[in-house]
Write a protein that binds this DNA or RNA. Structure first.
Lengths: 228, 228
DNA sequence: TACATTTGTGTCATAAGTACGCAAACTACT
DNA sequence: AGTAGTTTGCGTACTTATGACACAAATGTA
């Protein structure tokens, strides 16, 4: 009655980080085992029988790259029968954000190496992982326009210009600095601190802000839509 | 090296239809086999080894309910270990839209019955299917605000007021008829026909329109954002 | 023919978005 | 010190979008 299936299930994670304050990076690991041995790939692996999908992703990220994740959501499930040379492997992909300055990447036994790659300069990836990354980049571009996910990528306190540059990088278009500040102040999801940027390379030191999550949740409940 | 997995994969479909022109319905089937025998559930079933996920959904919709689908996209993958009493079954849920006036529901051997249910008056569902439906309703409400999916639910030619009532139903709030018309005309994704509504119950007969997909694709490429 | 009803078009006030100008606060160089 | 260069913070004027509402046109019905 229930057909015998020969399908295995894995999870993969597309984790974005904002490193050099000028480009968006994605976390990749170098495979130590076939197929695609010594090729770069997304961190991920087979789901264990008793764990949830989120647990599987978190576990793999920890063991393969030593990453503690700030934000994680499900992205898409890739199920093309030919996507894995070993046989039928369906992969549930996740979308993650971290602030890379918070920790050091640590490749484990499962991975030769773990590194950040600029999303505009990716190497050839294993499996269909370039499709997965492309899907994640689309999600990132869409999502940042109406949800305040940018804060997960920055330090806790930051000048508004950092946030603006992040938006410019992700959306890949210039944004008027003054209108962006006006909009952010108007939205009220930033909390000002009586602190200033320490060592600006040049120019007037900027006031530091942090994300006011309480205010954001309040606005969301009132149905106010955040959009850039 | 690769752990022996005991996970099975199935697909489920949340198919919406706009029937009585006053409420949104979802397609459910009555199960003939345990678990949850004789309970209402989403159409779906196990994925076959050689088929894609989309093929699996389409096949199940066809065999269980005789439905030809207008629009289909992936919704979310549900993977809680306890979601199926038979063991670990991960389900990839899909989101579909049809115009129910185009065909007759036909329950097959796999289902005792297939019926449309008002999304506000759902019966107790099998498995975690009420979570799945809730996720799909959220997606429907979000999606209709910035993508012209409403057309999949209406006849090919329709008066603007039908489209407006559909939006009011899905968003569950009143919309100013005149501003809605203005906005639709301004967007230019409607194509007017030199035809009028045949038998209006009362009042001036409305001009009939159809969706101008070409124009929509053009606008989308130019980066113009559609929003209600 | 009068009336209820629904559509099509328009107006007007207000809110939001866009493109700038300019002074304040800092660094670096002379 | 003083001056040039840079970046921030705040403001202004113009354009565009949104929301509330008025009114005539086209139909069915009494």
């Amino acid at each position: 009655m229930e057909p015998k299936q020969n399908i295995r299930l894995c999870v993969d994670a597309v984790v974005f980080g904002y490193t050099a304050k000028e480009s968006i990076s994605v976390l990749l690991i170098k495979r130590t085992i076939p197929p695609f041995m010594h090729r770069w790939a997304l961190p991920g692996g087979f789901v264990l029988d008793g764990e949830t999908l989120e647990e599987a992703v978190t576990r793999e990220l920890h063991t393969e790259a030593g990453v503690h994740i700030n934000y994680l959501e499900q992205l898409y499930t890739f199920g093309r029968p030919e996507r894995d040379p070993r046989g039928r492997v369906v992969s549930v992909a996740y979308f993650g954000l971290v602030n890379p300055t918070n920790f050091k990447l640590a490749a484990s036994s499962d991975a030769e190496d773990a590194r950040w790659f600029d999303i505009k300069k990716l190497p050839d990836l294993a499996f269909d992982h370039s499709d997965v990354v492309a899907t994640a980049v689309k999600r990132l571009r869409n999502k940042i326009r109406y949800e305040p996910i940018g804060f997960e990528l920055l330090d806790q306190k930051f000048p508004i210009s950092d946030l603006e540059k992040l938006y410019e990088t992700i959306l890949d278009r210039p944004i008027d600095r003054r209108n962006f500040q006006k909009k952010m102040n108007h939205l009220g999801i930033l909390m000002g601190h009586n602190e200033k940027q320490k060592h600006p390379s040049a120019g007037r030191p900027a006031k530091l802000y942090s994300f006011n999550e309480e205010q954001y949740i309040k606005l969301k409940q009132e149905g106010i839509i955040f959009e850039i």
